[in-house]
Design a protein around this nucleic acid. Structure first.
Lengths: 231, 231
DNA sequence: TGCTATTGTCATATTTATGTAACCTAAACG
DNA sequence: CGTTTAGGTTACATAAATATGACAATAGCA
C-alpha cells in the first residue's frame, strides 16, 4: 500500500492530544501534534498532513477561526479538517460546517468513531481519477474491476504482481531499477531485499504466460522494463 | 409501490420547507429537511433519500454549488436533484442543468406541479435495479416485491444481505473495498468494523448456495466484486 | 412483554501472499 | 576457455488476509 496517512492533531491539552495520537497510531496513522493555531499552521505548511483534527476551543486563535483561515489560503484550502468539540450546540455545529470543515465530532467520542469518521473523510477527500483500462497486445488491465485478461482469458495475479503490472502498463518503454520499482510499487518506506523484485518479476512473467511474458523485459545491469517492442 | 419514496428538502427558510413537506406528505412521500448544504450532505450520506429538492439561494454553500459537489462523489452521484429557484434567469437555468440537476422548478409553484415533476424525475431517473428486476445467470432480484429467486426458487436473505446483493447486482464487474461497501450499503455515518463486511459476504454467499456463490468474488488485498465472469 | 430474526464482533481456522536464501544459468570479460 | 557477475528459479517459513462458526446485543414484532 501507499504510505500511511499523516494526521495533525491540534489541541491545547497535551493529554487529549496524546490519547488521540495513540488511538490513531493503533489504527495505522502517523501523528503530529500542535498545541495552538500558530504551531499548527507552520506544521501544515511544512509537513502537509493529509488531515487535521482541530479542537474547537483553544486559547488564542480558536479552532473555528483557524479553520476559516485555512480555507481562505489557497495553499491550505484543501486539507481536510475534522473539528473536535465538547459543545453539543447546534448553532455552533452549523457555523463549523460553514467554515468548510469536513466533519464534526463531539466529545467525548470513542476511538472507533474517530477512526471511522477520519477514514470516511479521507476517502471522500481523495477522489480517484477516472481509471481507464489499459491494453497492450491483447493484454488488458482494468483497474476498476481489478482484473487482468490476456486475449479475454483471465490472468491470476497476486496483489503485488497486480500493482507491479499496473505500474508497468502505465509507465511503458522505460527501464526501472529494482529500487525504483520498490519505491513505486511497494511504497517508499518498506525495507525489502532488492532481489525480491526479481522474484515478483518472475511470478508476473509466469502468470502472463508465453504469449505475453516478452513484455516484461530484463535490462541487464539496470533493472526491468515493460515494452511491446521486442528487445 | 412498496416503501414510499423519501425526499430531502433543502432550503434555509423553515416555513418553505414546511409547506413543501406538507404537500409532499399528502402525496404519499416521506420527507426530511435540512436547512443548509452541510446538514443536507450528512443526511444524504446517512439516509440515502430517493430525491433531493434543493433551493437555489442559500447562505453558505449555494444550491448550485452543492449539486455540483454531489455529482462529483460517487456515493451521491445518482441521487436525483430538483432545483427550486425564484430566478427566472435563463443563464442560471443552464448552469443548473450543467451541474447535473434533473429538473428545475421556478417559485412560486403549485403543489400539484411540484408533485408532478417529482414523479416524472423519479420515474425517469430511477436507475435499473431500484425498480426493475435484475437477473444474472438465473439469479433474480426484484426490488419491488423485495424478493430474490435462484432459478425460480426463493432465496432467504436478511435485510442487509438483500441490500448488499442489490448493490452488487446494480454495480457489477467492479471491485469495492470494504469501506466503500460500508458507505454504499450501510450508509455513510454508521460505524462498523470493516470485517463485518466479510461476515455479511459470507452470509450472502451461503444464502446464494453453490449454484450462485461464484458471483460474489473475493479480490484479495482489495475487497469484493460481483461478476458473472469467473475469476 | 416475551419471542424471534438480525446484526455486529470475536476467536479460530484456512487460505494466500510475500520475502529470502540457496542454487542454477547465462551473459560479459579477461 | 575459465571466471566473474547479474539474473532466473525454486522451495519454504512466515506473515497477511480472508473465511467461518459462535455468541451476545438489538431491533422488530406479535
Amino acid at each position: 500500500m501507499s504510505a500511511s496517512k499523516r494526521v495533525l492533531i491540534v489541541d491545547d491539552e497535551a493529554p487529549i492530544r496524546e490519547m488521540i495520537a495513540v488511538a490513531l497510531e493503533m489504527a495505522g496513522y502517523e501523528c503530529m501534534e500542535a498545541e495552538n493555531a500558530q504551531a499548527a499552521h507552520s506544521l501544515i505548511l511544512d509537513q502537509k498532513p493529509d488531515m487535521v483534527l482541530l479542537d474547537w476551543m483553544m486559547p488564542g486563535t480558536s479552532g473555528i477561526e483557524f479553520a476559516r483561515r485555512l480555507r481562505k489560503d489557497e495553499v491550505t484550502a484543501d486539507v481536510p479538517v475534522i473539528m473536535l468539540t465538547a459543545k453539543v450546540d447546534e448553532d455552533n455545529k452549523i457555523k463549523g460546517l460553514e467554515a468548510g470543515v469536513d466533519d464534526y465530532i463531539i466529545k467525548p467520542f470513542s476511538p472507533r468513531e474517530l477512526v471511522a469518521r477520519l477514514k470516511a473523510v479521507l476517502r471522500r477527500a481523495t477522489p480517484k481519477g477516472v481509471e481507464e483500462p489499459v491494453t497492450v497486445d491483447g493484454l488488458t488491465l482494468d483497474p476498476v474491476s481489478h482484473r487482468v485478461t490476456a486475449d479475454g482469458r483471465p490472468v491470476e495475479l497476486g496483489p503485488t504482481e497486480f500493482r507491479l503490472l499496473q505500474f508497468f502498463m502505465t509507465h511503458q518503454d522505460r527501464a526501472y531499477s529494482r529500487s525504483q520499482l520498490l519505491d513505486m510499487v511497494w511504497g517508499g518506506n518498506v525495507y525489502v531485499e532488492e532481489r525480491t523484485v526479481d522474484v515478483h518479476i518472475r511470478r508476473l512473467r509466469k502468470a502472463l504466460g508465453e504469449r505475453h511474458d516478452y513484455l516484461v523485459q530484463t535490462v541487464r545491469g539496470t533493472g526491468y522494463r515493460f515494452s511491446a517492442q521486442v528487445a
